[in-house]
Design a protein around this nucleic acid. Structure first.
Lengths: 212, 212
DNA sequence: CACCTCATTGACTACTTAGTCAATAACATG
DNA sequence: CATGTTATTGACTAAGTAGTCAATGAGGTG
């Protein structure tokens, strides 16, 4: 399908992809100009259309590349999750996701952006493509590892997982955005936010209300 | 500033606004054509530019109109919140927000869309405009009404509020989207989802873990 | 070297679009 | 009614862009 592009030398491929990711992420699909891409990449317009046939195909290819890159990285990291305690495990999973997303910033921006808001006329392609990743690394993965006997009857595993992941994700995301501008490393940021995450986990574990 | 537009007859104003909201929400800022808007509204291109000077101003005006419409409606409804119990109060607030957002669907779509992803070159205008609404009707409003003596020490009010609102919002939103296609009314949908909301509230109140 | 095949170029087309402006219509006022 | 003022029109300009294609270059093979 895209063999013309794929058989290029790796560094050339990479250069073109990086530029496309930047342009699409920063400028959005509609406003990104293929003229700009080709000029920045130092290639001719003809060859870009030889590789990808049209702008839509190029965009989908690039987004899919990012999706795969991020997804594969997360999956690989998830192999090393080692916490025994359930809540620690959820925390570890969320933080792994965040670390990878932090590392592949532009790529993540493009993918989330596109999933939330697919350009007109490619809603189907995008949604079916990105759905491949959704929850591969969340609910199903964790639900196997939970010790139900510890939970109250009404606190079903899926709810506890959802609740915990949602709030940890929110807090981590909020702080990453805030600290990002100060050029801090991920582990520096992590140190700052971990106490807050633990406080939320405590509420979920033991409840907000005093015992009567 | 926009007196030329504002002194039009109400129904004409409304017709133009409605069409703009639809176009911008469905097609996005970049792809929305002022030609389409004027054609649909049955006005000339010249007069649109007479009213708003340029496309960017038109867009900001329309988004601000929606923001105000939704915000005012939520604020008005919030006057009637009556639950005494704190968690019920949070639930009521979230559901009021959702009901208004459900009622002004396109408007909400446009505003959330725009806040999340302002068109290039108007990030500042948009963010400062939309920030006016953020949390007017959430944290501060609720924090006054909470009875701290009921909460454990580590469960600070802001965390409990954030946790509860975040998860209720998520569940309500998910279900609204799913049921929306079946043309159900808001109160019909509400009946279906309320038990789930209460289950989450229970977890937050009393914790997920069995007492030992 | 001659020939073929495929990669690559970039000028070009066809189209869309934001924004303008001279002309005209509608209205107000003396 | 005459005259000035404001609302409205829509053809037009200028600029940008997706996608094409004839021409050229590069590499391989006999």
């Amino acid at each position: 399908m895209y063999s013309n592009f794929e058989k290029l030398a790796d560094d050339k491929k990479k250069r073109i992809l990086t530029i496309c990711i930047e342009e699409f992420a920063d400028t959005g699909y509609e406003k990104t100009s293929t003229d700009t891409i080709t000029a920045r990449a130092g290639i001719s317009k003809g060859i870009l259309y030889h590789y990808f046939k049209n702008k839509k195909n190029l965009f989908i290819y690039v987004v899919d590349y990012c999706r795969k890159l991020i997804g594969d990285n997360i999956m690989a990291e998830l192999q090393h999750v080692e916490s025994e305690d359930f809540f620690n495990r959820v925390k570890e999973v969320v933080l792994i996701k965040k670390r990878v997303q932090f590392h592949y910033l532009k790529e993540t921006e493009l993918v989330t952006q596109t999933l939330l808001n697919p350009p007109q006329g490619m809603e189907e392609e995008i949604r079916s493509m990105l759905q491949k990743n959704i929850d591969v690394y969340s609910d199903q993965y964790l639900e196997k590892l939970i010790d139900r006997s510890l939970l109250k009857e009404n606190a079903t595993p899926d709810k506890v997982i959802n609740l915990t992941m949602t709030i940890l994700d929110q807090i981590a995301q909020k702080n990453l955005k805030a600290y990002q501008e100060k050029a801090m490393s991920f582990s520096e940021i992590l140190e700052k936010i971990e106490p807050e995450l633990d406080e939320y986990i405590d509420i979920i574990k033991y409840g907000a209300l005093k015992r009567v």
